[in-house]
């Protein structure tokens, strides 16, 4: 287990994201109504902090939302115990709105694919941007973030977790990863981590 970011590193990463977000909201991105939508569970605290930055900078407050992508996952039938379904809450008109999707860790890109699918079942956003605190690589889909707090080099089987209580990012090498090639998704699920799936 090693600490990738301490609280000051995390503050810097969030500053970087906020800077990009403000530039986007101030005209870098198409004008019109916007919303900041966190992907549950790890993306929600980050979305709230970024939205607070926008408000503090005097930008008209973007709408706030949360997406739980459980019902849109592509691995529901892999023989694992059913994950519990969480809240999805998009209290604004999605059609015609610009949406900043926020997650804590970007990994395979599958969570983002699911989130895009769910978002489009609510309406037709005018544009979507992706903002993540940590990009840990190993993408399995053609999905790239627009804003990144920090890039972390990882092995495929490592676990990256964000501790929003202490503002730290941790990397834990998968124990025995080289022996058991099939345990990957199971181990990630079993610990219920907020990382990308």
């Amino acid at each position: 287990m090693s600490r990738v970011l301490d609280a000051s590193g995390m503050a810097l990463a969030i500053d970087r994201l906020a800077e990009g977000l403000l530039a986007g909201l101030r005209g870098g991105w198409p004008a019109g109504p916007t919303a900041i939508v966190g992907i549950r569970t790890g993306g929600v605290p980050l979305a709230d902090r970024l939205r607070a930055r926008a408000v503090a900078a005097g930008i008209p407050a973007p709408a706030r939302g949360g997406l739980d992508i459980t019902l849109y996952r592509d691995d529901l039938y892999t023989g694992l115990e059913k994950p519990l379904v969480g809240d999805t809450d998009l209290p604004f008109e999605v059609t015609g709105c610009g949406v900043v999707l926020v997650d804590d860790v970007l990994f395979t890109g599958r969570t983002i694919r699911a989130a895009l699918g769910e978002l489009h079942d609510f309406g037709r956003p005018s544009w979507v941007r992706l903002c993540v605190l940590v990009d840990r690589g190993h993408r399995e889909l053609p999905i790239q973030p627009d804003l990144v707090g920090v890039v972390v080099r990882t092995q495929l089987k490592d676990r990256v977790t964000v501790d929003w209580q202490r503002d730290e990012v941790w990397l834990r090498p998968e124990p025995g990863a080289s022996e058991s090639g099939s345990s990957e998704s199971g181990a990630r699920r079993a610990t219920g981590g907020p990382d990308d799936r």
Binding site: L71, Y72, L84, D121
Partner: peptide, 20 residues
């Protein structure tokens, strides 16, 4: 019952359909 509460939210959406 907890899962049913989440499913009820799907029933309040405009598109009342999810893919699982």
């Amino acid at each position: 019952l907890d899962t049913a509460e989440q499913m009820r939210e799907v029933g309040r959406r405009r598109v009342k359909k999810v893919p699982p």
